[in-house]
Every structure is written in structure tokens, then in C-alpha cells.
Design a protein around this nucleic acid. Structure first.
Lengths: 193, 193
DNA sequence: CTTTTTCAATACGCTGGCGTATGGTCTAAT
DNA sequence: ATTAGACCATACGCCAGCGTATTGAAAAAG
């Protein structure tokens, strides 16, 4: 489906998925409102005449892009979760995850900022519940009762969300990697029983 | 300076501050990009001819509005902080604050979503540091050493940010007040030594 | 009661994005 | 080699917001 091309500029013919890839890139760079058809067309070295052959409108691209992202994202999260056997080590790794897979976080963050758009909202709500569920399960495995585990999972997840919002944006005032790692370890010590 | 008028509609003549008030309202309702001069003018029952007498451009209104908001917001936070003597009770109240003063949180949240705009970014960074500083001080008063206190303050603040981002938007999936209070108490138990 | 000053209306041009319509070109299959 | 379908260009029209320029009205100052 994906054709052969060298640069972003001189490509052959595009598929619907190519537009989604470009949308994700724009999303990471300029946020949801950066996903605009004419700019995307320019970036792809094409005109919007092409776009409206693949999608009926901008929203449709957004929906398709987010659906693919959601699947892939949830799968990755699950793999990370179930990838570690030991319950405590497992949770620690989930927290340390914040320092890795940067691009993924950038998109997550951009989406969270646009959560007021219905199209984005429904997706982020599902993703949030999915993650909270898993974290909650992780805390149960550490001995917390159902209720405590859920609340702790919410706290953990929301502190993650807040962290991203903050540190993705204030790139100037960022902690250095060592300081960041130190912070994460503190969070682990504080939130994991 | 503020003239007499009955409704939002039929007012006499406007001052620069009237535009700031309207801007704050729009900010709470539609986010930063809702602060647009022509819509504001409509809401104020006036045309943009008026606006450009008071401000050179949209950005100037934003700056002025944010400056006023920042002062007022930081002052309120300090008052809440120093308003309670007992160090532990003080911190507990700061956390419970999340359930009150709703309008204030709405604006805070809207601003955080637009933190990529330089005008907004610089303000939110200052506000964030201000709050983190005070929280850090609060944790020191509870016996944490300087380093731990700072990290704990960051965690507390960022979990607050994440919480707002989430619950301001997903009004549908909100916790009921009792459940919310329960969550807050859990956070208090977990984060306050 | 003039004269300034302050505030507002009208009308204009510009930009950037959306979406449509129509026709053209390349490719793959017949 | 022809044809059908997939992909793209061009050229529209539309809308919403920004900002400017000019004129007008209403207060306040003199």
C-alpha cells in the first residue's frame, strides 16, 4: 500500500494511510489544530484535491488517525504491562516508562489538550479508562483492596497526565535526565506500596 | 472607571478592564482561542471598532488579562496557604481546595491547554513555580528535607494539573461529589507524610 | 456653550482554512 | 492497446477572524 519514495517531497501516489501518518506528525508538532488539510497537502507535496479523494472531510481524517493511534497505543501499554512478571517491578517499570518513548508522549499530550473536541474526547476517555484499569489491577496485585487500588491508579495516571502537560511544553525549564530519573524514583517510592 | 449597566447587553461605554472581564469569561467557556475580538465585541454589544481603541491587538488584551489573573490567582493561593496555621492541616486544605472555587480551576485549566502560546506559557510557568515553591515549603514544614519536599511538591502539583485536565473536560464521566471527596482524601493520605 | 477627549460604528482589505466541481493523468487489468 | 478506476491539479466560492482607516457621537473640560 505504501509506495516507494525518497523524501517527504517527491513521492509517487498517496494512500489514505499516508495522510494519517502525516496527520500524526503534524499532531505532534503543532497539536490537533495543526492537522489541517491544506498544510498537510503542502507537506506531502500535493494539493488538497488529493485529500478529498481519500477522505470526505478533515474530521474523517482525524477519526481514522485517532482510531489507529488508540489501538496501537493501548496495545503497547498492555505489552509493557504484561511484559514484566513481578508485580512490583512491573509497576515500577510503568512509571519509568514516562522517561522513554518520547514521541508517543508528545502525541498523547497534544491530544489531551484538545480533549474538548468531541472527536478527541471520546478517544481520550477510552484510553484513560484503559490505562487506569490496568494500573488499578497492578495495585491490587500489590495488595491494595479494590477501592484503594482504583483511587491510587487514578492518582498515578493523573500525575502522569499533569507531568506530560508540563514538561512537554516548558522545554526550557525541563529537568536534566538525571534529575528527571530522580523525580520518577521519588514518585515510585511515594505511590507504590 | 466601570460604568453602570444592567445586562451584558445594554451597557454604556466600555473600559479596557471591561474587555478583560469579557476575555476571562470567554476563556473559561471556549478556551484561549475563544478570546477573539469580534466574538467578544458581539458579546459586549459593540463592534470591534471599540476594541482597537483600547488595545492595539488581540495579543495585548491577552497579556493584560493574564497579568491581572496571575496576580489575583497567586495572591489567592498565598492567602489560602498562610490562612491555616497548623502545617499539616494547612496542606490538607490546599488539597481540598481542588473541590472548591470551580471557576478559578476552569480558567487555570484552559490556560494550561494553551501553554504552547508564548504569551500563555510564560505566565503559566511563573504560576507553576510559585505554587510548587509554596507546596515545597509546606512539605518542609512537615519534616521532609529540601530535596524530598521539592519532589513531593512537584508530584502534588502535577497530579493537580492532571486532575483538572481530566475532570474539567469529561464532565460526563465525573465522579459524584462524595466520590470526589473520597478521592481527595486518598490523595492526602498518600502524599502528605 | 464650545472644544477636546473618549469611545464606537462602518466599511474595507487581507489571510488562512474548509469544501466542491471538474477535468486531467497515471496505472493496472483486460 | 484500450479502458476503467485510482489519484491529483486547478480553480472556484465561502466563512471567520485580524487589523486599518475614517467618520460620528457623547462626555468632560474649558
Amino acid at each position: 500500500m505504501a509506495k516507494v519514495y525518497s523524501k517527504q517531497q517527491d513521492k509517487i501516489r498517496l494512500s489514505a494511510v499516508d495522510w494519517q501518518d502525516a496527520a500524526l506528525e503534524a499532531l505532534a508538532e503543532r497539536g490537533v489544530q495543526g492537522v489541517a488539510v491544506e498544510p498537510l497537502a503542502r507537506k506531502l507535496g500535493v494539493t488538497k484535491g488529493s485529500f478529498y479523494w481519500h477522505y470526505p472531510n478533515r474530521d474523517a481524517l482525524l477519526v481514522a488517525t485517532l482510531e489507529r493511534w488508540e489501538n496501537q497505543e493501548c496495545r503497547a501499554f498492555e505489552e509493557d504491562f504484561f511484559g514484566v512478571e513481578h508485580p512490583r517491578e512491573r509497576m515500577c517499570e510503568m512509571f519509568r516508562r514516562t522517561q522513554r518513548e518520547v514521541q508517543s508522549h508528545v502525541i498523547f499530550c497534544a491530544l489531551f489538550k484538545a480533549v474538548d473536541l468531541p472527536v478527541v474526547g471520546v478517544v481520550m476517555q477510552r484510553v484513560s479508562e484503559h490505562r487506569t484499569d490496568l494500573l488499578s489491577r497492578g495495585f491490587r496485585d500489590l495488595g491494595l483492596d479494590t477501592d484503594e487500588a482504583l483511587k491510587r491508579a487514578r492518582l498515578a495516571y493523573l500525575s502522569y497526565v499533569g507531568f506530560l502537560q508540563y514538561y512537554q511544553s516548558f522545554k526550557a525549564a525541563r529537568m536534566v535526565p538525571a534529575e528527571l530519573a530522580d523525580y520518577i524514583e521519588h514518585v515510585i517510592q511515594t505511590l507504590i506500596p
